[in-house]
């Protein structure tokens, strides 16, 4: 399915999934474009269910799912574009890393030579060359995570779905893997990630989908999501030379609800109900008062703050 600009989309149209009477996800309406999309939510919020639905491992109770217009009922087209790295840390017994990746590439219909070539390329990309000839059973957690990633990317999918892909990786490997995701996204592909690690989500995501108790509670780019949370005024951090004077002036602005001056008197934390209007009046005030501004940054327009406001402390890991 294509979007307005001919964009290829992963779409959920009124999708619900129930496990008997237990809710997995309910009435999900999403259209995910290229770039990195993070699914964020506490355990049991429906992240894995959503991922299993978009890869055809689960069937929706209601609604339809399409990947580039293809339905799960047509697996030859639907799955050709999808690579999925699940959370499941299990592998077919007795296989080496290379046999694992190449073996499942042959199930795609590739001949042995092509499967081996693609497997070697994917294994190299995740930095597993040296261990590829060893049995997966002897791998460390981080190596298993990377060989799963090689399996997911080996057929060069346009949609890469990753359920907690950073689990078990050391900081160096995390940085490499995040670089790989960015490379994928920069090439116009879809990277859909679920992660508990909010600061990493914040660093890499182009947009977030926040889930709680099976419902999508917010979605979009993080600043857009933040600006829609009316219950919590936006916080803006300002570093300047005359913080007290500026704070006193800003308190008279109708959109400003709170001003706190830093102890060093060189900074302010402003709370406002309308950031856009605040910024436009702020520019005028700064010019009028001739204040020297060092920095102006949103203090709570990140995934962590949005998560806090929408969900609270449930299942959070920083």
């Amino acid at each position: 399915m294509s979007g307005p600009a001919g964009e290829r989309l992963v779409t959920f149209d009124g999708v619900s999934k129930f496990y008997g009477e237990v809710l997995g996800v309910n009435r999900v309406q999403l259209a995910l474009g290229p770039g990195i999309t993070s699914l964020v939510g506490p355990n049991g919020s429906g992240k894995s269910t959503l991922m299993n639905l978009m890869t055809g491992l689960l069937n929706p109770t209601r609604g339809t799912i399409r990947v580039f217009g293809h339905a799960p009922a047509d697996p030859e087209r639907f799955l050709r574009d999808i690579g999925y790295c699940t959370q499941v840390d299990r592998f077919p017994a007795g296989l080496t890393g290379r046999q694992f990746v190449a073996g499942f590439l042959r199930v795609h219909g590739l001949d042995a030579a092509e499967a081996n070539r693609l497997a070697d390329a994917a294994i190299e990309r995740v930095g597993m060359n040296e261990a590829a000839g060893r049995r997966v059973a002897g791998y460390s957690k981080g190596m298993r995570q990377r060989i799963k990633l090689a399996h997911a990317i080996a057929h060069d999918p346009a949609v890469l779905v990753l359920d907690e892909p950073l689990n078990g990786l050391d900081p160096m490997a995390r940085a490499e893997v995040i670089g790989l995701f960015r490379e994928f996204a920069a090439a116009g592909r879809h990277v859909i990630i679920s992660s508990h690690i909010l600061h990493e989500v914040d660093l890499i995501s182009d947009r977030v989908v926040i889930l709680n108790h099976g419902y999508v509670v917010a979605e979009g780019d993080i600043r857009g999501v933040r600006s829609e949370i009316q219950a919590h005024p936006m916080q803006i951090l300002i570093r300047c030379d005359r913080a007290v004077d500026l704070g006193g002036r800003l308190l008279h602005e109708p959109d400003v609800v709170d001003v706190r001056v830093h102890d060093d008197r060189l900074g302010l934390l402003i709370s406002t109900r309308d950031a856009d209007r605040f910024y436009s009046s702020f520019n005028r005030i700064v010019l009028d008062m001739d204040v020297r501004i060092e920095t102006v940054t949103p203090a709570d327009a990140d995934v962590h703050a949005v998560y806090q406001y929408l969900i609270g402390n449930e299942g959070e890991e920083r």
Binding site: T55, G56, L57, P75, E76, R77, F78, L79, R80, I82, G83, Y84, T86, V88, P92, F104, V107, H108, G109, H151
Partner: peptide
């Protein structure tokens, strides 16, 4: 699931 994720 490794089989089910192949486009087959």
């Amino acid at each position: 699931h490794y089989y089910f994720l192949a486009p087959a």
